[in-house]
Simulated assay, not measured.
Amino acid sequence: MAEVKIQAESRTEFGKGAARRIRRDNKVPAVLYGHGTDPVHITLPGHDTMLALKTANALLLIEVEGSESLLALPKQVQRDPIKNFIEHVDLVIVKRGEKVQVDIAVHLEGDAASETLVVLENASILVEAEATHIPDGVTVSIEGLDAGAQIHASDLQLPAGTTLAVEPDTLIVNVTAAATAEQLDAELSEAEAEAGIEKDEPEAAEAGEPVSAS
């Protein structure tokens, strides 16, 4: 994974008011910590940070004027729930060659057998890898899999140097038979009954009353 160089500024103002002023200047308040160092409060350029964090587990080379450059991974990214802009970033300092644990995405490729339902039980998986060689994700082929097939963490083909950080029997993909129309109707009826929804039955014709055949 390529390093993304970001020029940061030291930050001496704290609190909600200071954070709002920083964001008004299209910048992002952030903190660097890890490896036994005191937290370093910095300000990041908003646009560059937004672009860098579009990549999961982005490896950032933080350059602060007057200080040594530091490699860091995003630990927590806070976003505005409505506008989705970045409000704050927690960054953990890493060293070249050290192992870190991160979640990587699971991507499916191919098509399972007809009349099956593919359930991705875990869209990401925790792995251990060198901080400078974190894979973008892992690809899983479901081509031709029949109902009843399962893929576990131990079945994943991880890149060299990357190892699982979860139990090997963790279920990743589960292939089941697709529900029939009758099963769906039965499930719907059961759900309606539990919710207390009663269907109106068609009124029967009274005795002696002619029934239209149209």
Rank of each mutant, 00 (worst) to 15 (best):
R24V: 00
K27Y: 04
V127G: 08
S189P: 00
L61C: 09
A18G: 11
A131H: 04
E121G: 06
V94D: 02
L158C: 09
P135G: 05
V211H: 02
L59P: 08
A56N: 14
V100T: 11
A112H: 04
R20M: 02
T116Y: 14
T12P: 00
V175G: 12
H88L: 05
E3A: 11
F14Y: 14
V211R: 08
V89W: 02
Q78V: 13
D169F: 02
G161R: 04
A213M: 01
E9I: 03
A204Q: 13
V175C: 07
T163A: 12
V100N: 10
A193W: 10
S69M: 02
D25E: 15
A131P: 10
R23D: 03
I142M: 06
A186V: 03
R96Q: 14
G15A: 03
E115H: 14
Q7T: 09
I62T: 04
V127Q: 03
R23A: 03
D80N: 15
S214W: 10
A72P: 06
F85Q: 08
K75V: 13
G137T: 05
K95N: 15
S69H: 09
L126E: 15
K83M: 01
E182G: 00
A165F: 09
T49D: 02
K16E: 15
V92E: 13
D200H: 07
V211Y: 07
T180A: 05
V77Y: 02
V119I: 10
A178D: 04
A193L: 14
I6R: 01
A2S: 15
E3C: 06
K54S: 03
G161Y: 13
